[in-house]
Simulated assay, not measured.
Amino acid sequence: MSDTLAATRPLAPAIEPAVPPRPERLVSLDVFRGATVAAMLLVNNPGTWSAVYDPLEHAAWHGWTPTDLIFPFFLFIVGVSMAFSLLPRLEAGDAPGRLFARAAKRSAILVLLGLLLTAFPYYNLDLAHLRLPGVLQRIGLAFLLASAVVLFTRHRAQIGITAALLLGYWAAMMLVSVPGYGAGDLGKDGNLAAYVDRAVLGTDHLWKSAKTWDPEGLLSTLPAVATVLLGVFAGRWMRSPRSPADRLVGLFLAGTAAVTLGWMWNEVFPINKALWTSSYVLLTAGLALHALAVCYWMVDVRGWRRWAGPFVWFGMNAIAAFFLSGIVARLLGMIKPGGVALKQRIFDTAFDSWLPAHDASLAFALCFVALFTGLMGLMYRRQLFIKV
């Protein structure tokens, strides 16, 4: 549009304010985000939870599996995206307070969506027993807190805050005594994060499968903020006026350093997704840097984009894909023709009747992802993007 206007009007006067150039859009970031969301749908929707391949399950407690990379990858991507959205506006002179107000609105919408998804379809649910933490709630809170850091502090201070979050969380988890358990207990019930969740939220508002702790609890959201901030640093690097080769080398070197530090920290503060330990933050951020580098090289440097179309569809409607998939999954379990859940009937008839149990469960999950790939493709073709 600007080119057309320029061709039909006289030259602008010299006093007209310059319009800052639009920030570079990384298609590879959309691909990375979309692949992460697609993986999230895959692991969240097996045909049956009694037959799931080990890599598609979370680690029982300490340790990690490929599934444990998905959520931190998404938060890391949130941080990279912030560098391409918030920072250009800040540099163009937008007031930090105004930008933070927008971030607070987005955060509130994410938290509300998370609560609606948790309660669906029982909106007459006793609020005294509604789970308050959740995936979307953590994304919203981590985004809000990271936005405050990015908007109101300088780059060096942001590095210091990230380090303080990781070191402070480690110190608190290892040194603060929990009544009845003592200090340094990293068990499911005896750790400080679980104690804080019980004390602040009460057991009626925690993850029902655990009842005494929550994998998206309050205290463990603080190191999740560090995950977002590490993504912001990666985004700053990608926005810098460096050659593609320099960007790639920097991503790989930083990723390798983070993975190494994460493994070293694991010796005294075990890698644990449910606790979102500091070692887990560094390990997953390092692997996310490597994954981003690979996507950047393939998609933006080499220009190999034909294969990546479906991931772009998911990446451009990430929150919609996650929210709608949660609704559909819930409905498949609730609709019971003949007294049998629709999901169970589909699984038994179309998959479990002729495939081994684990393969049948995986095949159902793949078909679920394929269904949403088609939906996201339709939305993309119609330019229907649901933004929060």
Results as ranks from 00 to 15, higher is better:
residue 61 W to Q: 11
residue 91 E to H: 14
residue 93 G to I: 00
residue 102 R to G: 14
residue 50 S to E: 15
residue 78 V to D: 06
residue 62 H to E: 08
residue 54 D to C: 05
residue 101 A to H: 11
residue 52 V to K: 01
residue 88 P to Q: 08
residue 49 W to H: 14
residue 40 M to R: 01
residue 50 S to Q: 15
residue 103 A to K: 02
residue 76 F to N: 09
residue 41 L to R: 05
residue 79 G to H: 06
residue 94 D to A: 14
residue 99 L to D: 00
residue 101 A to K: 14
residue 62 H to G: 08
residue 34 G to L: 01
residue 56 L to T: 12
residue 44 N to Q: 06
residue 59 A to H: 09
residue 41 L to K: 05
residue 83 A to H: 13
residue 59 A to N: 06
residue 52 V to M: 04
residue 38 A to R: 02
residue 79 G to E: 04
residue 70 I to N: 04
residue 72 P to I: 12
residue 61 W to Y: 09
residue 72 P to Q: 07
residue 46 P to N: 00
residue 53 Y to A: 13
residue 63 G to T: 11
residue 32 F to G: 06
residue 45 N to F: 03
residue 38 A to Y: 07
residue 42 L to F: 07
residue 33 R to A: 10
residue 88 P to W: 05
residue 78 V to G: 08
residue 74 F to M: 10
residue 81 S to T: 15
residue 71 F to I: 12
residue 90 L to C: 00
residue 65 T to G: 08
residue 82 M to E: 08
residue 103 A to F: 06
residue 47 G to R: 01
residue 58 H to G: 03
residue 103 A to E: 04
residue 81 S to P: 00
residue 81 S to L: 06
residue 84 F to V: 15
residue 100 F to G: 01
residue 76 F to K: 13
residue 48 T to S: 15
residue 104 A to L: 15
residue 80 V to W: 09
residue 41 L to H: 04
residue 37 V to R: 01
residue 100 F to R: 03
residue 83 A to T: 15
residue 101 A to F: 08
residue 44 N to V: 00
residue 87 L to N: 14
residue 90 L to K: 14
residue 72 P to M: 04
residue 66 P to K: 11
residue 68 D to P: 08
residue 46 P to G: 01
residue 97 G to T: 13
residue 76 F to A: 10
residue 98 R to H: 03
residue 102 R to L: 01
residue 35 A to T: 13
residue 104 A to R: 02
residue 68 D to N: 13
residue 51 A to W: 07
residue 82 M to R: 00
residue 73 F to H: 12
residue 46 P to W: 00
residue 103 A to P: 04
residue 79 G to W: 02
residue 90 L to A: 09
residue 79 G to M: 08
residue 40 M to A: 09
residue 66 P to A: 11
residue 46 P to Q: 00
residue 48 T to A: 11
residue 47 G to V: 12
residue 36 T to I: 04
residue 52 V to Y: 05
residue 76 F to T: 14
residue 62 H to S: 11
residue 45 N to E: 09
residue 99 L to E: 01
residue 99 L to H: 10
residue 80 V to M: 11
residue 70 I to R: 06
residue 68 D to Y: 05
residue 40 M to F: 07
residue 73 F to P: 11
residue 59 A to Q: 06
residue 49 W to V: 15
residue 48 T to N: 09
residue 36 T to Y: 04
residue 33 R to T: 03
residue 78 V to R: 03
residue 67 T to S: 12
residue 92 A to I: 13
residue 36 T to L: 01
residue 87 L to K: 14
residue 42 L to C: 11
residue 35 A to P: 05
residue 63 G to L: 07
residue 83 A to L: 08
residue 47 G to E: 01
residue 77 I to Y: 07
residue 98 R to L: 11
residue 54 D to Q: 12
residue 41 L to Y: 02
residue 60 A to P: 09
residue 91 E to C: 08
residue 36 T to A: 02
residue 53 Y to M: 09
residue 94 D to C: 09
residue 44 N to C: 06
residue 62 H to A: 10
residue 102 R to A: 10
residue 100 F to A: 06
residue 81 S to R: 01
residue 81 S to F: 02
residue 86 L to S: 13
residue 94 D to V: 11
residue 72 P to W: 03
residue 95 A to S: 13
residue 94 D to F: 06
residue 74 F to C: 10
residue 47 G to Y: 01
residue 87 L to S: 15
residue 57 E to C: 11
residue 73 F to W: 14
residue 102 R to M: 05
residue 34 G to V: 05
residue 48 T to P: 07
residue 81 S to M: 10
residue 102 R to S: 10
residue 51 A to V: 00
residue 99 L to V: 02
residue 103 A to V: 07
residue 66 P to R: 12
residue 76 F to Q: 11
residue 53 Y to I: 08
residue 83 A to E: 09
